[in-house]
Write a protein that binds this DNA or RNA. Structure first.
Lengths: 196, 196
DNA sequence: CGGCAAAGTTGCAAATTTTGCAACCAAGAG
DNA sequence: CTCTTGGTTGCAAAATTTGCAACTTTGCCG
């Protein structure tokens, strides 16, 4: 499982290189400086290669973040099977999301860029939607094999992603350095209780 | 308030005409048949006008649906001020969403198209996000004037939009003609209780 | 080990899409 | 009535996207 072959690893490597380069360029020089040409030049690759991997710059910029989102579902699956689903989410998500986000000022910049650019907003929503779907699958595996529970899993995954998105937004624009993990825990707890 | 001037009404009219035309063409001839050129031709307008109003075909197709989503917030505001927020949501959303969606087969087609086209998925998510934001504003007005409650309103609005999106998806692909309003009521009730 | 098949990378040019600009006409203000 | 603002449109330049084919590397099997 940890050996998907040299070929795939190389492909993933170029993807990651391009994505990280695009991400850094956005943070350091602004979104306008990020183009398929500029990114592939900075990464020592052909512009055509960029387009082979990504539809556009927004997809490239957020690709690595998207990959990390997908690991959340795996961490859900790694928890003991009999653990109640809410305990599982509360155990996994806050630390994982906090680690994934890292520096607050970086995300403050990202949120600003997203707010200014419709295409970045759209791509960010796509990332969250894919995260939601993968979470819903993992949740559904835990709860039951019934098809009927699919709706429940979707609802729960949606709530979880909403909690993530809301806390990250709040955290990113907060002046005081409140802990993201605590913020997310608070949001999830509220949702579990049922929002007064 | 009901008289925004002839100018704005005319602009809204051409927007609506283009959007409805694009919507119909998607349903009847498939997404591939929808282009700025074909739509504006069918609507007796210049392609340049299409691009003046819309960024791309996906935005045009979903524009009217987006407008209807924005009316949800107004309907929330129209409820008695002392009504508990969950009662308010349960009273407004199910009937409003059911009326907004109309025919099930139409939405089944829409969901299929969304599933097949990344750009349509992205635009649909943008519509839902704008809906979420307008709902959050309306909810925040009702609950309190405190800035602190903004997070709560966002969480609640996110949960509501998740409920809408989940029920519509479930309803659209259901073979039996279950009532969309009942489905949404069920989802909202689950969220209010806190998802066992 | 060879060598075939499959898949990633790249360049180039055609095709398509997007944008800037300016003209024109209708609507609102005074 | 006149002036100003803003929606509609055509045209052409600019930018982006796509198709195609060549070349290279990896995976696989005899």
């Amino acid at each position: 499982m940890t050996q998907p072959g040299l070929r795939e690893r190389k492909k993933a490597a170029t993807r990651a290189t391009l994505s990280r380069t695009a991400w850094s360029m956005m943070l350091e020089q602004g979104l306008d400086a990020v183009t398929p040409e500029s990114v592939s030049a900075a990464a020592d690759m052909a512009p055509r290669t960029f387009r082979y991997h990504f539809r556009n710059r927004e997809e490239a910029i957020l690709d690595e973040l998207a990959q990390q989102h997908l690991t959340l579902a795996d961490q859900i699956r790694a928890r003991p099977a009999q653990e109640p689903i809410w305990d599982c989410l509360l155990a996994v998500l806050p630390p994982a999301v906090a680690q994934m986000c890292g520096d607050r000022t970086v995300f403050a910049t990202l949120m600003r860029v997203i707010g200014d650019n419709p295409a970045m907003l759209a791509q960010n929503l796509v990332v969250l939607e894919h995260s939601r779907l993968s979470l819903a699958r993992a949740i559904n595996e835990r709860t039951s094999t019934e098809v009927h529970t699919a709706t429940f899993a979707n609802l729960l995954a949606g709530a979880a992603v909403t909690a993530i998105s809301t806390s990250v937004a709040h955290w990113a624009q907060s002046t005081t350095d409140t802990d993201l993990a605590d913020l997310l825990t608070s949001c999830l707890t509220q949702l579990r209780r049922g929002l007064p």
